[in-house]
Structure formats: C-alpha cells, structure tokens
Nucleic acid binder design. Structure first.
Lengths: 320, 320
DNA sequence: ATGAAAGCGCTAACAG
DNA sequence: CTGTTAGCGCTTTCAT
C-alpha cells in the first residue's frame, strides 16, 4: 500500500470522523441489502414478540438486520408493507402471516427471493417453514385430560385459516381415537380469531348448545382464558367442575386464577429456526425448501383436575 | 410524452413484471433511506411490544419503515446494532434504551441524525422524548393507598439508571409529603432490574430488614408480582395483610391472583408520540427538541384493601 | 416544455 | 498484485 504511517493516520482520522461504509451504496452494487423483512400479524399477540426476538437474534449474528412489519390483521396494510420493503430490496421475507390463499406474498415469491414461514405451514412443502408440532400439542393436552378420567372433552379450535388451528383440530380428533374416546361424545367449535373474547363466545355457545363436557381444550391460551370467563358466567368452577387446557404457554399464565395447564411451545426457538432456514436459503438459493418442527411439552398447573366421574362420590358431566 | 396508448401499455407491462422503484438507488441519490432505527432493550419486556407497535404504526403511515434492534440488555449488542443500522443510512433513531452516560448513541447524534427517546427522558431537554409522567404515577399509587388508610408504605424502586426508576422514586417521596406521611415510617429499596425475581428479592429484603409496612408500591408490575411471591413466602396475604400496587398495567394483570391494582400507562400512545416527534424532526431538522408526556391513570383491582389499622378490630402494621 | 448526462458511494472487472 | 474505471438505478441539473 502507501506509506504505513500515512495509512494508519488515515484510518484514525476516518474513525474520528465516524466513517462507516455506506451499506446502501454497497447494496446498490451487490444487490445484497443486508435486510430481511419480518411480517407479523400482530405484535400484541403474546406469542409474537418471542418469535421476533428469536429471528432478530439469529439474523443479527449473521450480520443481517430486520425490517419489521406489523400487519395488524389487515390485508391492506400487509400489502402496503410488503410493497414498501420489496422496494427496499429485502433479501428475503419471514412471515407469520399466511392465512389467505390469494396471498400478498406472491410478488415476493415471484421476485425469486426466499420466503420462510414461522409458526405456520402452508404450500405442502414448497415453502420453508418453522412451526410447532400442532398435532402433538393436542395429543399432549387430550392425553393429560384422559389420564384424569375425562371422557367428554370439548375443543375450542383455532381459526380455520390458520395452520395451527387446523393442525390442532386434526390432532384433537386423532387423540380422541387413540384414547378410545368417541368423537360423538365430544364437541368442537371453531373460533374466528385467537382472542379472549372469541374464547368466551365459543365456550358460552358450547354450553348454550347443551353440549356435555367435563373438560375443554382450547387451541390457544387466549381462547382458554376466554373459557374461564364463560364458565364463570354460568357458575361453573375451574377446575372443580370443568378442566381447561390451553396451548402456547404464554407469559404469566402461571399467575392466572387458576394457573393455566397448557402446552408449552418454545417460540424463541421457532424464530431462531426460521432465521436459520432463511440463512440457508440465502447461502444456497437452489436448496430445497425445508421444514423444522418444534416439539411442544405439557405443563400441568391448576386448571385441570380429576374428572367428576373419576372422583369418589360424584358422577356425570358438569354441564347439563 | 410519447404515444398515449404506448405509455399505458408500458405501464401495464411494468406492473405485470412486478416493477418497483428501487428505494435503495433512490436513497443513494437523495440520502433518504426511508428507514428509522428502533432500538429496544428487550422485546420480552411486556411494555415494549405495544411501544414498538405504536411507533411502527405511525411511521408506516408516513411511509417510513422500521429497522428493529433488540439490544438484549447488552451494551455490546447495542453498539453493534447501532453501527449496522448507521451504515444502512437510517434517517433517525428511536430508542427505549438510554441507561448509560457514555452512550453508544453518540455516533448517531454526531452524524446529525435525529434521536428520540421513548419511555425514557435524558439530556435535560436536549433530546426529544415521549415518556410517562412518572411522578404522577407515584402520586396516583400513593394517593390510593393513603385513601385506604395506609400510613406505612414501602417502595420497591426501579433501577437507578432508568428515568422511570428515579422519576417514580422522586414522585413517591413527594406524594408521601403531600399526604402527610413521614418518610421515616416508610422504606425504599432500589431494585437492580425490572424483573419478577428482583421484585421478590427486594420485598424479601424489606421484610428481613424488619421494616414495618402495610402496603408496597412497586415501580413496575414485574416488581409488583415479585412482591406477591415474597409476601407469600412468609405467609402474608395480599391484600389482607399487605396491599400491593404496581405500575404499567401490562396485559393480563387483571387475571392475576389477586388481580393487580396498578397505574395504567398507554404504551401504544407513547410509541406513536415518539414517532410523531421523529417525523417532526425529519421535517424540520432545525426544530427544537420537544418532549411529550403521557398522563397515567389509576386502575384499582384486587391487590389493595383498607389498611389493617383502618379496619374495625385490628391495628398495627402487618410486618413485625 | 422534454431529453441527455452526471453522479450518489460503493464493488468488480479490468489494465498496468 | 496494485490502481483505475465502469456502472448498480435512481434523481437532478443542465442543454436543447
């Protein structure tokens, strides 16, 4: 190079002046912007922050940064966001958002940039995805309930346009068979959204319908606490009259009244896995899509108890 | 222009091909990247997601997108992130992270880009900031407790390097005076972090010290539920023996056992206000820094009750 | 009015 | 192996 001392002086001056290579200019030349878009339905849903944190952590290690898009459950907002980050030349997209068939992500796919799904599956293996073993979630929940002697188990299913909703419902039905319980004795109601209000509405409807059950498995903790409210409204105790199991193990469920028995999903790992998948796709654009499934675990707390029929001096379902 | 029909045809083809103006190229020329950095200490802290959502929502309306950085309480990570987004030519930085004096944000400041603080104040008015009225939070909490007849009120203060921690402590002391309570009768312990464990440790220490109190005001809900645990450990009931008040009103505190009396802070509005401040600074780089303070509100639930001394047949502090 | 040309800060391909 | 140069896709300035 030039004179050694001069070089050093220049470097020092550059540093003092706060020089940073301009990643935008580099990106223009190399077509590598160094940013990944992360699209989420709703930052306020307790499962989302740990996922985003997992993604961000892994991506940052690899020198990428994340352009965050909160779609707020609006397809219009989703479209606008996606167009915006597309024009910002994101190198890939990680989304927790797929619920439509005609998807706003199509232009991204068409542009040849990798897309990975997180907490969702779709496209029959044509898309990389990191998601929980939804059927196993249900198996864990139903197995626990069956062990406690419950034979009439209701299910408040997740929305039909989410893979978690349909996967857990499928798992619920299978688990019933596995444990020798008749589907006919149980009841399923499909919620429209993963919210407390919907959980309450669904559970109330189950009760109003005259369904007999001593336990209810909800596809999500938010739905489960909504069930608490519905039960409470009609004077039914949890777990004394009916047991409730949720899914996700979101923060603070251990402090609820009663503490919620639920299925833990490691959302942070889900996010990190999705980031890993993205990194792989970026490193080798011709690689096959790959799926990573995360194993859930049962966490037993206070919202489940022996079924009435399994207790000494008491029998029959709690409802009707 | 050229032939009208031809122009239209070209536009249609461009659309079909999925053409998007390249924001990176534009940014190189105009020095406006269209992205704002958002630096947070920890996405897992329940107050952070609503803040980020508020920021993102307002910024998206104005056509900006957010580069998210989760510092994970590590100054090293914070530095790395900040350098990364600086090289990405962010137009400004919104941070919830200021706790150090020698701050990693200095290079950003030096580069002349606007910086706005959210949920924090610092720099004596030299920095724009959106933050809660921390002294009022304490006034609301102490006022409520005083009304219930409590005269010996302990305070688990927030970390000394956070503006919320020191502001609420200052407010606590002032509120004591306002309500004619002697500081000497009360006790303060300063926590090191805003976590449940720290809350438990601090409250346990207060008890072990022999401090007499019938109520405790914690600078944050996480600390407050830690107090639940400490009280529980020594067989003290809440609110029967000691009342507990938190601050923030994070999600689901209404489902805790007992439901937490706390001070609500509209974190979404905090985020939106910070975004607004950023937009102002971007529109007029010579504008004076400005502060927006958000008014908190008291939300009374089940963790507070009449002081023992204010009840019929019982007097004296609960502890010692 | 419209169209040509220069250049933002970098990298990659090239010539010396 | 080092040093020069062209050009990424846009905006803006300057001729026409």
């Amino acid at each position: 190079l030039v004179n050694e001392a001069t070089a050093n002086r220049i470097i020092k001056v550059a540093e003092r002046l706060g020089y940073r290579p301009n990643a935008v200019a580099r990106g223009l030349k190399t077509r590598r912007s160094g940013s990944i878009g992360v699209l989420v339905p709703d930052l306020l849903n307790p499962v989302i922050p740990p996922i985003v944190r997992g993604i961000e952590g892994r991506l940052a290690e690899a020198g990428y940064n994340v352009l965050l898009c909160n779609a707020d459950h609006s397809e219009a907002r989703e479209r606008i966001h996606l167009e915006a980050i597309r024009s910002h030349q994101i190198e890939g997209l990680i989304t927790a958002n797929v619920h439509h068939d005609a998807s706003p992500i199509d232009p991204i796919l068409a542009s040849g940039r990798p897309v990975v799904l997180v907490n969702r599956v779709a496209g029959e293996g044509t898309l990389s995805a990191a998601y929980p073993d939804d059927e196993l979630c249900s198996e864990l929940a139903v197995g626990h309930l069956a062990e406690l002697g419950h034979r009439r188990i209701a299910h408040v299913a997740g929305p039909g346009d989410t893979s978690t909703g349909v996967g857990r419902l499928r798992g619920f039905r299978r688990a019933l068979r596995v444990h020798g319980l008749k589907s006919a004795d149980s009841a399923v109601i499909v919620s429209k959204r993963y919210t407390e209000d919907e959980g309450k509405r669904c559970c109330s409807q189950l009760i109003a319908r005259g369904t007999e059950f001593t336990a209810v498995y909800a596809a999500n903790d938010l739905l489960a606490v909504g069930c608490y409210d519905a039960l409470n409204d009609v004077g039914l105790g949890c777990p004394s009259d009916v047991s409730v199991v949720g899914c996700n193990d979101m923060p603070f469920t251990d402090r609820f009244s009663p503490p919620l028995t639920t299925v833990n999903i490691a959302h942070g790992r889900l996010g990190a896995a999705a980031a890993e998948l993205m990194l792989e796709a970026l490193a080798d654009p011709d690689a096959q899509p790959r799926q990573i499934v995360i194993e859930p675990t049962l966490v037993v707390r206070g919202s489940t108890a022996l079924a009435r029929s399994a207790r000494i001096s008491d029998a029959g379902p709690a409802c009707r």
